Computed example of a mutant assay.
Amino acid sequence: MFDHIVFGVSDYAASRTFFLKALAPIGMAVVSEGAPGIELSADGKSSLCIRRAGEKSGHLHLAFVAESREQVQAFYYAALEAGGTDNGAPGLRPNYTGRYYAAFVIGPDGHNIEVVCHEPEA
């Protein structure tokens, strides 16, 4: 598990809106916000820090753990509603493992955002 991830975005307002809406279904919420940017966390132990950069950085693949397949689905639809682009609808990815249930969305700066559940179907 990571402690924190920090990355810059070219359009802070758009990215802030996108990440807040897209990651709300897995419990991510604002921990702090200030001049450099925003910090989000779901557990208070690890955080995602989005910084004002003014230019696009290299593309990232960020994968977040969901507790249920329903959270994966909720993330996907929230992320699309927030302006993300489909990069893989919710579903099993048997080429990874038999229980790898994930969805993928491209965010405002081209980052591939994934939410994955490793739990069996309820």
Rank of each mutant, 00 (worst) to 15 (best):
V65W: 03
K45V: 11
L20W: 02
D86V: 08
S10V: 09
P25K: 13
T97K: 03
F75H: 07
G88D: 04
A53E: 10
K45E: 13
N112G: 03
G37A: 02
S10D: 08
S57V: 05
P36E: 15
I113W: 06
F104Q: 06
A122G: 01
F64V: 11
M1Y: 07
E81C: 03
Y76P: 00
V6I: 11
R52S: 06
Y101L: 09
H111I: 01
A42W: 09
I50L: 15
A42I: 04
I5N: 12
G98C: 02
E119C: 07
L60R: 13
H4K: 11
P36A: 12
V116F: 05
F2G: 03
A35Q: 14
A35R: 15
F75P: 00
V31P: 00
P108W: 05
P36Q: 15
S46H: 15
A78L: 05
E81V: 08
F18R: 13
D11G: 02
A79V: 06
E81K: 14
P94K: 02
Y76G: 01
V72E: 00
E114G: 03
H59L: 11
G110C: 03
I26P: 00
P94M: 07
A102K: 04
D86F: 09
G44F: 01
S41D: 11
S46G: 15
G44M: 06
L80D: 06
L23R: 11
G110F: 01
V31E: 15
E55N: 02
L92Q: 09
F75V: 11
